[in-house]
Simulated scan of single mutants.
Amino acid sequence: MALNGLYPTSDFAEDQPMPHFILTTHVVHRTLPFGAFISSVIPLSSRFIFRRAAAQTLPVSTMLLRSNSTGFFVSGIIGLGITFGRMMGRDDIEWQDRSWRLLRNSGQTQLDDFSASGMALGAIVGTVQRGSLPLWRGFAGGAGLGSLAGTIAFVTWKMSSSKKEGK
């Protein structure tokens, strides 16, 4: 069963339950892979391109988990700001319409499912592989990296399946 199948949906947009929750969690969820990308590029470039001495002291996995744990929370806060900044003063029907369309868009729900699965797996792996980092850093950093991995897996899968179909 798809993760988006857990959200209640209606036949009509104006009857959509929980629109604020659905739209907010969706936008926050979509900002996480972007935050993970930036949170990965910065320490990796510091280590491998600029060869900074401070970046050479930690293992790459610890460095990525530490950076991505911060990026996880920062991008989540940015996602909240984006949602409420865009939807401030909007009527409930607009929240309902946007959340209803998200749940009815098969490509978007597939992406969300891939990303959420990657985030769950990444949180587990990050927790196990955290090394000397606190538990929360391993969990959050792994979840962020997992959301990015799930998003990349979805894009790769979509591109390869469209090439097979000749599109």
Results as ranks from 00 to 15, higher is better:
M63E: 14
M63F: 06
L64S: 08
S67H: 10
S67T: 07
S67D: 08
N68S: 13
N68Q: 13
N68D: 14
S69I: 03
S69E: 04
T70A: 08
T70N: 05
G71A: 08
G71Y: 04
F73K: 05
V74C: 02
V74M: 04
V74D: 00
S75R: 00
S75E: 00
G76I: 01
I77R: 04
I77N: 03
I77D: 03
I78P: 00
I78H: 02
G79P: 01
G79Y: 00
L80G: 02
G81W: 10
G81V: 11
G81T: 11
I82E: 06
T83L: 00
F84C: 03
F84L: 07
G85K: 06
G85S: 07
M87W: 03
M87S: 02
M88D: 14
R90S: 12
R90E: 14
R90P: 00
D91M: 11
D91R: 14
I93L: 08
I93P: 00
I93A: 07
E94W: 07
E94Y: 09
W95Q: 02
D97E: 14
D97V: 10
D97P: 02
R98K: 13
R98H: 11
S99N: 12
S99A: 15
W100E: 05
R101G: 08
L102W: 12
L103N: 07
R104Q: 15
R104P: 01
R104E: 14
N105S: 15
S106L: 13
S106N: 13
Q108S: 13
Q108E: 15
T109A: 14
Q110P: 02
Q110H: 11
D112T: 08
F114G: 01
F114M: 11
F114D: 04
F114Y: 15
F114W: 15
A116T: 11
A116Y: 11
A116K: 09
A116R: 09
S117N: 12
M119I: 06
M119P: 01
M119W: 03
M119R: 08
A120N: 08
A120C: 11
A120D: 10
A120H: 08
G122P: 06
A123T: 03
A123W: 01
A123P: 01
I124G: 04
I124H: 04
V125A: 15
G126K: 01
G126P: 03
T127F: 14
T127H: 09
T127Y: 13
V128P: 04
V128K: 09
V128F: 13
V128T: 12
Q129T: 13
Q129N: 12
R130V: 01
G131M: 05
S132L: 03
